[in-house]
Design a protein around this nucleic acid. Structure first.
Lengths: 235, 235
DNA sequence: AAAATACATATTGTATTCAATCAAAATTTC
DNA sequence: GAAATTTTGATTGAATACAATATGTATTTT
């Protein structure tokens, strides 16, 4: 097992990204330099470079003299997410359909297989990470350096939202997950056919499904029946 | 004149950004650590952090064991730029119209004044930088952390393209510049009126004007008259 | 003479050390 | 006893020293 500082640095980077995506490192969590430095066997200098990279990629935020923290997720960011995501996702999938290379399509199919596996046996985190990988590949396919940065940031919070909200607890939610998987298959087909229009439509559909799922969590149907509510108090 | 390492670091960051935007540091130019370190009176450690930040912001690219270079601009990137820019610019201006704060509007007006000044007296670089500041403020107004990264990257290359192509050499090009200035005024008005639809339309107009100007350079009208052309040969 | 290999040099990457800044706790003063 | 100030501990930021990697040149071999 090769193990050099360079390898450790890459591992650290990958590990932190995964931990942030699946909320093992929750929003706002302090990324302590000394602790991480010791844990990953790297001195603080290369470690800080990794943290700066994460900041550049949108995984973390830097506060002067206060170190780095995992990017926050507020109600404001959620709203902005819903505003930007449909547009960027649509554009990316259209371009993906136009530009996808055979090798990338093969990788997309593999990712989709992993997503299917995660649906059966995995946790919410595993599903979300697999879904993230799938969409990351579509981003590569689009091959547009100007869209990529926003797309990447959207994917970060899409994954984190997914971990939070995609915990199937009702039959309808489980059904939605298999629908999402079917849509992935359709997306692959549209990309393989280089059908940009179909890809755009599928993007909309996929997005609407995702949004519906999230809405079920954010705005659940109220509970029926005889809860004894305390009298309202000011304060 | 206060002068601490922190200040020098910020100055270095600002200076490099400006130099890259106005092509004083052209695409592909090597950002030598030792040289910059000496020039700005900083050790290599904070200098490297600035370079990493520039990489994260899209100003530079990092190659393992080969240091950092100013981001490249190829025909591919130009095409991708034209694909992404109208969409993102439109979205940003709409959101700017919705969300702009009075203080930001005041700053936008100041930026527009500087743009007007640059039109009269400045160089192509000065005009492009002033234009860049104007649009940067609209990006702040939009206040959407997901769109911001792509918008920022577009602005970088918009500025660099501007320096290259916005050198008025014909009356029509000069006329275009004052049209652009008028459009800025109209954009300010639409933002101040919180009229998102008007802002969207102006974004399209502004973009079309910009694209037309660039096209005049990329695809100039052919030269008339008696050039003795060699016989066509197969390549 | 051309190609390949080895060596020298320059540059990047990492580690360690030192300085500055911030937050919190304890002491002093009102 | 409460508020303000000083002091202390911890953490971030910068500089220097060291190691590894790559490129270019020179020498050797075919």
């Amino acid at each position: 097992m090769a193990d050099s500082p360079k390898i450790r640095k890459i591992r650290l980077h990958e590990q932190l990204k995964r931990d942030i995506l699946c909320l093992d490192l929750p929003p706002g969590h302090d990324l302590d330099e000394a602790a991480l430095s010791e844990k990953f066997g790297l001195s603080r200098t290369p470690l800080r470079e990794v943290l700066l990279q994460l900041v550049g990629e949108g995984y973390a935020e830097q506060h002067p003299n206060r170190g780095c923290r995992v990017s926050e997720m507020s109600h404001t960011s959620l709203r902005n997410f819903f505003l930007a995501a449909p547009m960027v996702y649509g554009a990316v999938l259209q371009l993906a359909a136009q530009n996808a290379q055979p090798l990338q399509i093969a990788r997309l199919k593999e990712a989709q297989q992993r997503f299917r596996d995660a649906l059966k046996s995995g946790s919410a985190a595993a599903r979300s990470l697999a879904n993230n990988e799938f969409h990351m590949i579509t981003g590569e396919m689009a091959d547009n350096a100007y869209l990529q940065p926003s797309f990447q940031r959207l994917l970060i919070d899409h994954a984190r939202i997914g971990v939070t909200f995609y915990r199937p607890q009702t039959p309808e939610m489980t059904e939605n997950l298999s629908k999402a998987s079917e849509q992935h298959d359709a997306i692959i087909a549209s990309i393989e056919a280089h059908d940009a229009a179909a890809a755009a439509q599928l993007s909309t559909d996929h997005w609407n499904l995702s949004r519906g799922q999230i809405e079920m969590f954010v705005m659940p149907v109220g509970l029926d029946g005889g809860l004894e509510l305390p009298r309202a108090t000011e304060g």
